[in-house]
């Protein structure tokens, strides 16, 4: 449903997480009349990586990703950082407030290339947010769908590794999510700031043998090192039992393009690497023009692009 008109949502709850960031729980108010299972409402067809436009009344709209897609009660979650006017106003709003939401928009992550494929995920800062529903799905953590077939299939065959970079400890986001994933998948955390680097556990030193051992013994725990996500990539890659066939990237564009370049230099094909982009958006309908990359609009052709497609765009 492509429209300028938002549906009403209620701000149900929020919790703080990280630097000026929160998990928000919203509830769609108009789902009561659309519970027909055979014709699911468009809000119930959200793909991981898609986004919605949040309308903060009297202030404006901005795009945000779902960290949990709408369930049949119409509840969904989003992870939101306080940045500009829209988010600052949102942060000052009380539980019970009425806002608007439009969506879902955009192309999500290419599930057919992820499920049953060894997948490397590289995220920076709040770039982890668009990956949350996906990782949840793949690790069978989707709270509302305990018997997700996709997840069961995936769980058995594929290996998933997450590299998560942040400026410093305070800038690390999505702590509860990472805590629950690290029981199932290997996570490498990197911190830019030198002074913040602390040895938090025995696996701190990132070296191949340690990690192989960790893998083998099924003791998956998070590893934290100082540096950029790029520095940990050799280790992360060698942690895979079989090389990954898909890589998903989300974070600062410079980080993503360096990582993508590294991965292609180390055996991955550019059509197996996917990036999620962030752009200023006003309509999410491919009309207002703000989110352009060359002749395409991120809100429609993206926000996820293959590295191959992006490079073609840049070469044009």
């Amino acid at each position: 449903m492509l429209s300028h008109i938002p549906d009403c949502i209620e701000l149900v709850d929020y919790i703080d997480d990280g630097e000026q960031a929160r998990h928000y729980l919203f509830r769609l108010l108009n789902l009561a009349h659309s519970k027909n299972k055979n014709h699911p409402h468009h809000w119930q067809q959200v793909q991981p990586g898609q986004f919605f436009m949040l309308n903060v009344p009297s202030i404006g709209e901005a795009p945000f990703t779902f960290t949990e897609p709408p369930n049949e009660r119409g509840e969904f979650k989003a992870f939101i950082r306080q940045m500009g006017q829209v988010t600052s106003t949102l942060f000052s709003m009380q539980r019970g407030a009425i806002l608007g939401a439009r969506g879902p928009f955009g192309r999500g992550w290419p599930l057919d290339k992820i499920v049953n494929h060894n997948t490397l995920i590289i995220a920076g800062g709040c770039g982890l947010a668009p990956l949350v529903t996906l990782i949840d799905k793949l690790t069978n953590n989707s709270p509302d769908k305990p018997t997700d077939k996709l997840a069961n299939k995936a769980k058995n065959k594929q290996q998933l590794i997450l590299v998560y970079g942040a400026r410093n400890k305070a800038a690390q986001m999505l702590t509860p999510e990472r805590a629950r994933w690290q029981k199932q998948i290997k996570i490498f955390n990197t911190l830019d700031a030198t002074d913040e680097y602390t040895s938090t556990n025995a696996n701190t030193r990132a070296n191949t043998s340690d990690n192989t051992r960790a893998n083998n013994s099924n003791e998956l725990r998070a590893t934290t090192v100082q540096g950029s996500p790029l520095m940990i990539l050799p280790t992360a890659l060698s942690t895979f039992t079989r090389p990954p066939t898909t890589a998903l990237l989300c974070g600062p564009e410079l980080m993503m393009s360096s990582a993508a370049t590294y991965l292609t230099e180390h055996g991955m094909t550019s059509d197996a690497i996917f990036l999620a982009l962030e752009r200023r958006m006003h309509c999410a309908l491919g009309l207002c023009g703000h989110c352009y990359i060359k002749h395409q609009y991120v809100c429609k052709s993206g926000p996820t692009f293959s590295w191959q497609a992006l490079q073609q765009l840049k070469a044009d």
Partner: peptide, 20 residues
């Protein structure tokens, strides 16, 4: 909510809230 003609030549056209 109003829409108004914009221009891609403005510096702020694509600037995000993060200043990126």
């Amino acid at each position: 909510q109003q829409r108004f003609w914009d221009s891609c030549l403005y510096e702020g056209f694509q600037r995000e809230a993060s200043f990126n």
